[in-house]
């Protein structure tokens, strides 16, 4: 209740500033205009199409990153030589914002879906690798030893003990990867043609439709935090609680 009235107050202040007409409406639209633009965009489907297009890219890029990141993380956790050779490279790659690869991917793949999906993939994959590796590395040896004395070995030891033990940290990595890839997707879409949210944003700007620009930003914020809160944060917290890592 307190929170709700606070945000209502913010909107009222926004409207008040708009009414003062300090800036022309095409630079500073009011909340009502943004709201109606949002409603209209949702009603005629342009925003929903954009959300679907963005999420499709995200799903493919993130899915590939998950598959690749888990395999590579596993390899690095298990194989010392691989870790010595590739470890520094992975942490170096992690430091590069994936949008920096766009000039290259555009040259190689053109201004296409593949190019954006590659950016999303590059945004997500490194933190998945790093956290998978760390998660597996940090599994308490005691659990592994206990499982071994109870007859677990090889692949069963891995699936029954190592993976669940590493899960909390792996989930943190997935959540981080989601945040990176969401940002990478928006940056990539701003710079390329298509139907995604970023593209609707840039088109709206080009036709000087400021309310639509803000409406898209609202959608980006809402969907970004919805996925983070409802999916990743919840999964992470539930796991941590069940594992006894967080106060119940």
């Amino acid at each position: 209740m307190k929170r709700l009235s606070f945000y209502l107050l913010l909107i009222v202040i926004w409207e008040a500033i708009y009414r003062l007409s300090l800036w022309p409406p095409y630079l500073f639209p009011g909340p009502l205009q943004v709201g109606s633009s949002l409603v209209q965009g949702l009603a005629d489907g342009t925003l929903l199409v954009a959300v679907a297009a963005s999420f499709r890219r995200l799903a493919i890029g993130y899915g590939l990153a998950l598959a690749m990141g888990l395999s590579l993380g596993l390899l690095l956790a298990r194989n010392r030589t691989a870790d010595e050779l590739l470890g520094p490279l992975v942490s170096g790659m992690q430091a590069i914002p994936s949008i920096a690869w766009l000039p290259l991917t555009v040259l190689w793949l053109g201004l296409s879906e593949a190019s954006i999906i590659t950016i999303v993939f590059l945004g997500a994959v490194w933190s998945i690798v790093v956290n998978t590796q760390a998660g597996i590395r940090n599994v308490p040896p005691l659990w592994v030893r206990a499982a071994m004395t109870m007859g677990a070995s090889g692949a069963r030891l891995f699936t029954a003990v190592v993976l669940p033990a590493a899960l909390p940290q792996m989930l943190s990595g997935w959540r981080l990867a989601w945040a990176f890839s969401w940002r990478a997707l928006m940056a990539g879409e701003l710079l390329s043609p298509g139907k995604g949210l970023g593209e609707v944003l840039i088109v709206s700007r080009n036709v000087n439709d400021m309310p639509a620009v803000l409406a898209v930003i609202v959608i980006i914020g809402v969907f970004g935090s919805l996925v983070d809160n409802l999916l990743f944060k919840r999964a992470e917290e539930q796991t941590r609680r069940k594992w006894g890592l967080a106060p119940a």
């Binding site: 030893r145 206990a146 109870m150 070995s153 003990v161 006894g244």
Partner: peptide, 18 residues
Amino acid sequence: GPGVDRVVVFQEAALFPW
């Protein structure tokens, strides 16, 4: 090697938290 005919109880319980 380790085997089910010789099971260990460790100082810390070593139960699997999940």
